[in-house]
């Protein structure tokens, strides 16, 4: 009984912290204390967190090097924009369509390519991302290379925040479930996992489809905040940006991915005042971090209750 009670209190406490964080920022926005600049960076931050956490599921936990995340983001962005701008549907339908389309794309690309390993898979996913981009460039319905301009701004802070929380919750709970243990076992040793009776392809595809789905969600949120999308926005450099966040945070650490996404967003914004040497400083900081923390900021550890308890000296 005592244990359940503690769990309940802890759960309520966590929900309270999440709601409080949301409310504080919502208040700051309504009160006009967070101007547009901060809102834009806050949006980038949330979108980057969703992208990094979902890619970390594929790259970090499942151990499959995917370089096509921007491709899934593009699928999500375009399908949501087609829904809301061309077909006049509400944004909720647009988001659902984005998730569904990206998940389907993830399934289609995942089933054949996840038989490949290591660099072969990386090249196959990279190629897939490029295919998406080139196909979009040649579809006149979505204006080809010029992209779609004047997308209504429908992405709001509550939507962003709770999308981010849902992404993190789904990924964390998936990893802590029996599915998650199977997924991690694929990363640790695929042959051994198979010997233990785990259908490795199935778990790889599951992780891939879920990762792609959240990339689609991020794409939908991105498109409805940044006014313009074009195929060039989702080129392979975008995929690398997300990969940098995952590696910087530590492969296989969700909190690491979150911290790195926040770090990269803040760093990009902070360096805006040094236009000439901006990219040099950015690269330099990344190199320094990787020299001193080659396993990433968090390694494969999580920053959670246990860490807090250890620091704060409370009960485990």
């Amino acid at each position: 009984m005592q244990e359940t009670k503690h769990k309940l209190i802890r759960f309520c406490g966590e929900v309270l912290v999440l709601v409080a964080l949301f409310t504080v920022i919502q208040y700051l926005i309504t009160a006009g204390m967070l101007d547009m600049y901060y809102q834009i960076n806050l949006t980038s931050m949330c979108i980057n967190i969703i992208l990094a956490v979902s890619l970390n599921l594929i790259n970090g936990f499942t151990g499959q090097l995917s370089l096509g995340h921007a491709g899934f983001m593009a699928v999500g962005a375009y399908s949501s924009v087609i829904m809301t701008q061309f077909l006049g549907q509400p944004f909720a339908i647009g988001i659902l369509a984005a998730c569904a389309a990206a998940a389907v794309a993830g399934f289609i690309i995942g089933v054949p390519t996840l038989r490949l390993k290591g660099d072969y898979l990386a090249i196959a996913t990279l190629a897939f991302g490029e295919i998406i981009r080139v196909v979009l460039m040649n579809i006149d319905y979505v204006n080809g290379p010029a992209g779609i301009v004047g997308i209504d701004k429908l992405t709001t802070w509550p939507l962003l925040y709770w999308s981010m929380i849902i992404t993190i919750l789904v990924v964390v709970n998936l990893i802590n479930s029996s599915y998650g243990r199977a997924i991690v076992s694929v990363r640790e040793d695929e042959v051994a996992a198979e010997l233990m009776g785990i259908n490795t392809t199935r778990y790889k595809v599951i992780a891939f489809v879920i990762g792609a789905m959240f990339a689609g969600l991020a794409g939908a949120l991105y498109a409805h905040f940044f006014y313009i999308i074009k195929p060039e926005t989702f080129n392979f450099l975008k995929s690398f940006d997300i990969l940098v966040m995952v590696v910087l945070g530590g492969l296989g650490s969700t909190t690491g991915a979150i911290i790195a996404a926040i770090f990269i967003t803040v760093l990009t914004a902070a360096l805006q005042s040094f236009p000439a040497i901006r990219m040099i400083l950015y690269a330099l900081i990344l190199i320094i971090v990787m020299i001193y923390r080659p396993q990433g900021l968090m390694g494969n550890k999580e920053f959670g209750r246990e860490t807090l308890n250890r620091i704060w000296g409370g009960r485990r």
Binding site: D35, M36, Y37, Q39, I40, N41, S44, Y222, F226, Y227, I228, K230, T233, T268, A269, Q272, S273, P275, A276, R278, M279
Partner: peptide
């Protein structure tokens, strides 16, 4: 200010 040849960065720079 540098917008890195990206539309979303251009938006952020403009806000700054």
């Amino acid at each position: 200010r540098d917008c890195k040849s990206l539309a979303d960065e251009a938006m952020s720079v403009s806000a700054a």
